[in-house]
Amino acid sequence: MSAQMPESALLERAMMVPYQAISMPNTTKRGLKLLMRRDDLIDPNAIGNKFYKLYFNINHAIKSHKRRLVTMGGPWSNHLLACAQAARKNGMQSRALIRGKHHKFLSQTLQDCQSLGMQLDFVSTTEYQSLTNLPHSEQASLPDKLLENRQHDYFIPEGGCNDLGVNGCQYIGQAIRRYSGTPSSVCVAVGTGGTFRGVVQGLGGLCHTLGVAVLKNTHKKTTLFGLGSINHQPWSLAWGFDLGGYGRRLPAQAVNFWRTFEQNNQIAIDPVYTLKMLWGVDQLARLGYWNTGDTVIVIHTGGLQGRRGFSQQMDWPTPKPVM
């Protein structure tokens, strides 16, 4: 992404994202019309929702005359790679605090970040958690660990989940509002929650928004759903579909589901976010969550580079994207 593209063009760009009819075992049995919004195609680097999350952050950093992006993430983070790419494209430096110890061999994601000039600093899991719990609204309150040079550094929190990131993701919802027809639900994977929040706000009450939590123990209640509202817009959050947790080895049934989906629909998906969301949608369809004939839009949030961390579990060719 480039700050040279005017902010007013973001909605137009979002409206160009195609929708593709897809099928899954239980949604087909229930007679649902399933459409996938292909936000993995919004950028040649397939960074998906990170395009929206970084859009206003990059613009603000440049307008504030910042020289370096500083952020956080794990060794396979889509967000880190997207930040490194954005910094390089806009003539900025980049730095990342990486969760966990520095191993002898970097992940392929971190190798890519490093090749783009990103400075990698590793912190313990405990320290990382303490840093992610800091408020993001006031950069002046952030510790020196995050901002080495407060005059030149611009901090973007883990996953790009700040107000500017949420604002960018609203354009996904706004674009769906302008798509022909009114769906019964719009479904999206939920990690840090910024994309989900933005989609809810952007839809403006057009339809119900369902978030599928991809992190383990997102909620410890025994119920399947959490209900709430954002700016008076209703939403539901479903958990129990994390498939073992973030970045964990997938169970055999999930791998089979993944393989079958890609072979039937010829769409490559990432195993950390979109796969879990689709798994959740298919299981909820089996439980009768939707009515026969309902139209459900599922959002492909990109992140295909994360497939590399699961290469040992993949024994089928990756479908090539069709533009």
Rank of each mutant, 00 (worst) to 15 (best):
N133F: 09
D39C: 07
F225V: 11
G302I: 13
K29P: 01
G194A: 12
P183C: 12
Q266M: 08
Q233V: 15
P234D: 00
N264Y: 06
V272I: 14
S94K: 01
T318E: 02
A254G: 02
R249L: 10
F56T: 12
G309V: 00
L110K: 00
L203E: 02
V255P: 03
A21M: 10
A175V: 01
E127P: 04
I62G: 09
L287I: 05
G306V: 00
R197E: 15
L35V: 09
L146Q: 05
Q93D: 02
L147S: 05
S311Q: 05
I297Y: 09
G204T: 03
G240K: 13
G198V: 04
T292H: 12
K104R: 13
V199W: 08
A84W: 00
E262Q: 15
G160D: 08
Q201Y: 07
P319T: 14
Q305I: 03
G159R: 09
S236I: 09
L275W: 09
L147I: 03
D315H: 09
L131V: 00
Q312C: 04
G73S: 07
T295S: 11
N26Y: 14
G240F: 14
A46R: 06
W290M: 06
R150L: 07
T292S: 04
G48F: 07
M16W: 05
F51L: 11
W258P: 06
L215I: 13
A84M: 05
A140M: 06
G204P: 04
T223Q: 14
N231Y: 15
D153L: 07
Q305F: 02
V200K: 00
G293C: 13
T132K: 02
D270H: 04
W235P: 03
L250F: 04
T274P: 07
F122P: 01
F225P: 02
G193K: 10
L131D: 02
Q253W: 03
L304H: 08
S124L: 05
R150S: 10
W290L: 01
C169M: 15
G100C: 08
G198L: 02
D163I: 06
L284G: 03
L237H: 07
P234H: 01
S77N: 10
G191D: 11
I22G: 03
G100R: 06
R307L: 15
G245F: 00
N59V: 08
I269F: 07
M1F: 09
G240A: 14
V123G: 01
D315Y: 06
D163A: 15
E127F: 08
F310R: 03
